[in-house]
Design a protein around this nucleic acid. Structure first.
Length: 1024
RNA sequence: GCCGGAGUGGCGGAAUUGGCAGACGCGCGGGAUUCAAAAUCCCGUUCCCGCAAGGGAGUGGGGGUUCAAGUCCCCCCUCCGGCACCA
């Protein structure tokens, strides 16, 4: 079916001929060329609409059936909007820097530029084959120098910017130098980078120090960060590429955590704006949420804990020292922590430093040094993933040092443990095992004190308390025993916890008085002895034991007892701030972006390094810095266990390229390249003006077209690409280069195109060629005859269920392909490809064809008649226009196509079809099946493309039926259906329902209590 | 573990957001046309009982609110996606 040789004998629908004809026509007439403001043919009266696809990576495999799903959706919208009278910008390009081309080059020696161009050529062919209405004059590829020239330029813009905390925006770095020089900005308050001393006068710094300060504030800066370095592969690996055992996923080589100088982008400065500006966009809730979680804003406080060496601690005198206020940076002997639960401060029974914390080295005592060193060394070699994989069992070592809890003067031990991460907060925590699951596990493992400082609610006791096994009596005696052993230890260690003991005993006494374990008993036992439970209470409630006894600080003290969590937080934060011991603070999970890769096929950094350590960004006139020609792309291999040799990226071997003489000075280029994300961070701007050589894009074009009105792409980019692009956009915005705070307005993720697969009884997946359908819906194994079940899975080579778009188009044409993908289901849903369903859409086009063309003669169908349409045809037309229009507006393309099926089903049997009705239907088909629609439009006597024809309007009154069927229910069950006039009011409906014979007999022996009438829908009679 | 999303015929999926469950397509069954087939056109198709008229059940499972629940509330099950010691 659908073969062209068959239909060519008659004058039937023949997609191959029609599609090549119209694709040639569009190319020749540049039908979709979109003028910019100021260009000839630009109509400033029309509103604008910018529809964008996430551009593809030009892989050797070409397009798969997933690509055209999103591309067709945007194309339908683009074509629809053009017909609605919009200036539509609908471009396409290629995200062409990236790893696969480089890996292919390593294997074959073929230059990535060559493979990339070849792949782009193939992809362009495929894209054109679908008939997408792109303005091909705006096509771009991120790996072309005239494109990445400006990727590099934006990088230099970041290099030459700092984030001014006073206005929360990027400003030229020269303004920082000026502000520091004239004293409008103090060094300490401006600094992001740690300085050892507290307040420093700018004038007292030497040139090298000044440069270090300035460089440290740039939005693009070089820093030493811990990376996963694999010597055998000669490269740094992403966390995802490292196994739990700390080895490379590819090749199973050892991987080492080691610090490496990397380009970083200071995205963290934008954390708050990236978060709050999510309110400005219209994105899927799930994506919004993922971005929020990724940024991970939390609110809490910082608290300083002084290290204490003497046995005697005088908390009051420490507070006196802090009378001058809370320092911007803590003193050398102070541990600063961050917490979201400052209300639990009285429950802090120990502290933990991350293994990389600078204080570890300083405070570790002689007896503990050996153990701590060994632990820290081991932790350094583990990848992040390896650390988290061991979450079941916590590890850590006591440093031998103690710190003082500033709210109660208690002396608590300081530990090192890798469950505390250097990269978040301050890299140090106060541990409150009574209120935090991780601290609780750690405390149980190392027998550290656990004290409840929040009274669990009875609700928690009922639902979540993880009680030890046993009867009430057994649990109580376990709790009592646990308390007793603690008391003995405290006695041994000379710790005074008498008031806590009194408190706990009282709670134990009250628990289980009547031998029945109530939720109140569970609550009491938790407070008395949390240790016997399997999990701590991490919720909110009333503060207790805060402080446990008399306020130890006398008048200076603070008590939270009896306060609800929210109030307790405020009270303690007020106290901390008043005493210079802590302050309110906000933290983000978001980290600065490691921006360099040790690869060849990416954008070179547009900077020069001098021998004396200075780095300079090149000006636009020196860009693009193009990649050197190379023949070998593989990294130099290093011995497996050589953790010390620095990685040597491929560019380092291009000696001639690397060294630059300028102004009689010798400089070197940067050996790294940018990550693949770079090019996609701003391509939507380059589309506005892709050939501009002087500027990344014309100012007027930017003002006119931005923001992107509709952006469609995969959900796999819900976090990184979208976050990175928003970040770059905001930097450009701060400098006035773009006029909108956000780049993308409405965002939609198309679902995945999956495939059917089969599973036998053991759960094994079977490849498609060993399964056959013997009965309807019953699948059997071809050889064993065993019955198997159909499931939905990802397309994969091994399952032999990959569908190639080229083959489908060969057989059915692009219009059918487009219709099928749009008809499969909702755009956002993942759904299985089923080739069996495709002919149905082909049939729709055939039937539409026959509404217009006489297949015997090739002339217009004799059934087409001119003049005014009859009422029925007019009604179905207006219904169809209404349905299709509203569905496209809501991007419900599947139901829009269902409306077209209905129209064709309705019109096909008619002896006479009104020409103007059919013509308007052809226009409706245009966005979905553009080739056949153009052909029919032409045959109906129109000389021009239908691309810019006016979208048909509908009259709501004409789209309605005169009579509608109403369901009549008795007590909610449908008992009869009656036909009534569509505008019948409630009274008439009730009367008509009551008059129905069937209803009469139903309610004959009952009393009518109530009648509910829903106009145009139903009547429900409540009778008993 | 935490945070999201989903579960409707043999299959893909509809369902004015509380108002006739299964639109539309596929598949399947029947008929017309044909020497025959393909194609085309028409009719039927949630399941169960029944020759039929008719009756009963039904949107992952259990409970609830309501005249009325696929849709709202509570509990549970399964699948998919994201995060994963973030203090």
């Amino acid at each position: 079916m659908g073969s062209s040789e068959q239909s060519s004998e008659t004058f039937g629908y023949s997609p191959a001929a029609i599609e090549s004809k119209w694709q040639a026509y569009w190319a020749e007439h540049k039908t979709f060329k979109t003028p910019n403001p100021g260009d000839p043919g630009f109509d400033s009266d029309k509103p604008k609409y910018y529809v964008l696809d996430m551009f593809p990576y030009p892989s050797g495999a070409g397009l798969h059936v997933g690509h055209p799903l999103g591309y067709t959706a945007t194309d339908v919208v683009a074509r629809y909007k053009r017909m609605q009278g919009f200036n539509v910008l609908h471009p396409m390009g290629y995200d062409s820097f990236g790893l696969p081309a480089e890996q292919y080059a390593i294997q074959t020696g073929v230059h990535p530029a060559i493979t990339t161009r070849k792949n782009i050529k193939n992809m362009r062919r495929q894209l054109k084959m679908f008939g997408f209405s792109y303005d091909w004059d705006r096509e771009l590829a991120t790996s072309e120098p005239d494109y990445y020239k400006f990727t590099q330029w934006i990088f230099t813009l970041m290099f030459n910017s700092w984030f001014d905390p006073r206005v929360q925006a990027a400003k030229p770095i020269s303004e920082l130098e000026k502000a520091l020089a004239d004293g409008t900005l103090g060094v300490t308050e401006a600094l992001t980078v740690a300085m050892d001393a507290g307040n420093v006068a700018w004038g007292s710094l030497d040139d090298a120090q000044k440069r270090a300060v300035i460089n440290g504030e740039r939005l693009a800066f070089i820093d030493e960060v811990a990376v996963n370095w694999c010597p055998a592969l000669g490269t740094v690996l992403a966390n995802e590429e490292v196994t739990n055992e700390g080895r490379s996923e590819r090749g199973d080589h050892p991987v080492y955590r080691r610090p490496l100088r990397q380009w970083m982008l200071r995205i963290t400065k934008y954390a708050d704006r990236l978060l709050t500006d999510l309110d400005l966009v219209s994105w899927p809730d799930a994506t919004n949420l993922m971005q929020r979680n990724w940024i991970g804003r939390s609110v809490g406080g910082e608290v300083d804990f002084p290290i204490v060496t003497a046995d005697e601690v005088d908390p009051a005198s420490w507070l006196v020292q802090r009378q001058n206020g809370y320092p911007a940076k803590p003193e050398a002997n102070v541990i600063r922590i961050y917490t979201t639960r400052p209300d639990t401060l009285f429950g802090a029974t120990y502290m933990v430093l991350a293994p990389e914390h600078p204080l570890v080295e300083k405070i570790t005592t002689a007896e503990q040094r050996h153990a701590v060193d060994a632990y820290v060394t081991e932790a350094r070699h583990k990848s992040d993933l390896a650390r988290t994989a061991e979450s079941k069992e916590k590890t850590g070592v006591f440093t031998g040092a103690h710190a003082m809890n500033p709210v109660n003067g208690e002396r608590i031990p300081v530990w090192v443990a890798d469950y505390v991460l250097m990269g978040y907060g301050t890299g140090a925590i106060m541990a409150v095992p009574g209120g935090d699951t991780r601290d609780f596990e750690f405390a149980k493992q190392f027998d550290l004190d656990i004290i409840a400082v929040v009274d669990p609610t009875t609700e928690w006791a009922e639902k979540e308390a993880r009680l030890p096994k046993g009867t009430l009596e057994e649990i109580r005696s376990a709790a009592t025993a646990a308390l007793k052993s603690s008391v003995e230890r405290w006695k041994r260690e000379g710790v005074d916890r008498s008031s806590h003991v009194t408190f706990a005993e009282k709670y134990l006494d009250e628990a289980g008085a009547d031998d029945v374990l109530s939720s109140d008993d569970i609550r009491r036992m938790y407070v008395a002895s949390p240790r016997v439970f399997a999990a701590p209470f991490t919720g909110e409630g009333e503060a207790i034991q805060s402080p446990a006894g008399e306020t130890p600080l006398g008048d200076r003290g603070c008590s939270l007892n009896g306060l609800k969590t929210a109030d307790a937080k405020n009270a303690i934060l007020d106290w901390l701030e008043a005493n210079g011991v802590g302050r309110r603070a906000v933290n983000y999970k978001l980290r600065d972006w490691i921006f360099s890769r040790q690869k060849y096929w990416g954008e070179p950094f547009p900077v020069l390094h001098s021998d004396d350590g200075a780095t300079e960004a090149l000006g636009l006139d020196a860009l693009a810095v193009t990649l050197p020609e190379m023949e070998k792309f593989a990294p130099d291999p290093v011995a497996d266990d050589d953790a010390e040799t620095m990685p040597k990226p491929p560019l380092a071997r291009a000696a001639e390229w690397m060294s630059v003489d300028r102004d009689g000075q010798s400089w070197t280029r940067d050996v790294n390249t940018m990550p693949q994300w770079a090019g996609s961070c701003w391509y939507y701007l380059r589309f506005l003006d892709p050939t501009n050589d002087a500027r990344f894009c014309d100012e007027a074009a930017e003002k006119y077209w931005m923001p992107v009105d509709l952006y469609v792409g995969g959900a796999e980019h819900a976090v990184l690409h979208l976050l990175y692009a928003r970040f770059w956009h905001k930097v450009l915005f701060d400098h006035g280069y773009v006029s909108t705070p956000e780049p993308f307005g409405k965002l939609v993720h198309q679902g995945m195109v999956q495939a059917f697969a089969y599973k036998d009884k053991t759960g094994r997946l079977l490849s498609n060629d060993v399964v056959e359908e013997r009965d309807e819906g019953k699948y059997t194994h071809r050889e064993t005859g065993e019955s198997v079940t159909q499931i939905v899975a990802k397309m994969s080579k091994s399952l032999k269920n990959i569908v190639n778009p080229d083959e489908i188009i060969d057989e059915f044409g692009a219009d059918t392909f487009r219709l099928y993908e749009m008809f499969m289901g909702p755009l956002e849903a993942s759904k299985p490809w089923n080739t069996r369903d495709v002919p149905g859409l082909y049939k729709l086009l055939q039937r539409a064809w026959r509404l217009v063309v006489d297949e015997q003669t090739g002339a217009l169908s004799a059934r087409l008649v001119d003049g005014e349409p009859d009422v029925e045809q007019n009604r179905i037309l207006h219904k169809t226009i209404k349905g299709v229009t509203e569905d496209i507006e809501q991007m419900k393309f599947n139901t829009a196509i269902a409306r077209m099926f209905e129209f064709v089903n309705e019109l096909t049997p008619r002896e006479q079809r009104n020409r103007s009705v059919i013509e308007r239907f052809v226009l409706l088909m245009g966005p979905f099946a553009p080739h056949v629609a153009e052909e029919l439009w032409q045959r109906l006597g129109h000389a021009e493309t239908l691309t810019y024809e006016r979208w048909p309007a509908f009259d709501p009154a004409l789209a309605k039926d005169d009579e509608v069927e109403i369901a009549v229910q008795v007590k909610g069950k449908v008992k009869a259906r009656i036909m009534v006039s569509a505008d019948a009011d409630e009274k008439a409906l009730e009367a008509a329902a009551m008059a129905d014979e069937k209803i009469q007999s139903e309610i004959a022996d009952k009393t009518v209590r109530k009648v509910i009438v829903v106009k145009g829908r139903l009547v429900n009679i409540v009778a008993t």
